[in-house]
Nucleic acid binder design. Structure first.
Length: 252
DNA sequence: CCATTAAATTCAA
DNA sequence: TTGAATTTAATGG
């Protein structure tokens, strides 16, 4: 069965002079810039951004490249990874609309230690270092929001270290499923982010075969279901319990 | 880890 | 819309 999606494309472009990718036209309410839009005294900051489009599978940050600014996702999803010891890809996080990419290298680091690839067709907003610095210095609310974001990311990254080093493969895979569910939600009973088994593996720190094996066990246990690339969670509570049980020990 | 088969997705006509 | 071509999933050695 094919889904036919009708999209009204050109209904709210009043003037061609209005950039469809401008911050004013954007409706990512979770974007830090959009949320603080009214508190920027001059519009130079947002006018000076660049937008660029990436096709699915295209890499827009390469490891080792110099950092010149910061990316915000206007549309689409992205995976952020780091190349591990034997060339194995370690996915650091998945990011969606409104999120920031490349922030770790901002300010102090000169070169990216991560790479980023578009999981779908993506539109990115790019702010140069200088432009952003000016906005941060003059707008404390914006800076405060950025700080909260950094703190949050740090927290998440610390708990990921814990999970990679102390959880079993099965738990890490369940944890990954719950993370995707938490972040991207589900659509018609399936996780709203199509990922290959290899990508699950790269995030959970295991191999594709392990993921496939665990998935079919979980399927037999009636906890999840899968249809091709699409994964659906049936019994989220049991899955959560399995993780929480362990966190009790880990947290102490 | 690799090879084989089954299944799903993409592509182009 | 269809099926051929390509990619991805699943299983067993």
């Amino acid at each position: 069965m094919q889904k036919i999606k009708k999209k009204p494309i050109t209904n709210n472009l009043r003037k061609e002079s209005l950039n469809p990718y401008s911050c004013a036209a954007c409706n990512n309410e979770n974007c830090l810039i959009k949320r603080n839009l009214k508190s920027f005294s001059n519009s130079k900051f947002t006018e000076n951004k660049n937008t660029l489009k990436c096709k699915k599978g295209q890499q827009f940050i390469i490891e080792g490249a110099p950092v010149n600014g910061l990316f915000f996702i206007l549309k689409g999803t992205v995976k952020v990874f780091r190349t591990g010891i034997n060339g194995r890809e370690q996915i650091v996080r998945f990011a969606k609309e409104g999120e920031i990419i490349g922030h770790r290298g901002f300010g102090t680091e000169e070169y990216y230690s991560i790479g980023a690839i578009a999981l779908q067709d993506v539109v990115l907003c790019y702010f140069s270092k200088d432009n952003l610095q000016e906005a941060l210095i003059e707008n404390p609310k914006f800076t405060y929001d950025m700080m909260l974001f950094y703190a949050n990311e740090l927290n998440r990254s610390e708990s990921k270290v814990k999970s990679i080093s102390q959880m079993t493969v099965r738990e890490r895979i369940i944890d990954t499923l719950l993370y995707i569910h938490r972040k991207f939600g589900d659509l018609n009973g399936f996780l709203n982010l199509p990922l290959s088994r290899k990508e699950y593996a790269d995030y959970a720190g295991t191999t594709e075969e392990q993921v496939i094996r665990i998935f079919s066990i979980l399927k037999k246990e009636g906890l999840i279901l899968s249809k091709g690339k699409k994964i659906g969670i049936i019994d989220i509570q049991t899955l959560r319990n399995e993780i929480n049980e362990h966190n009790y020990y880990l947290d102490s």
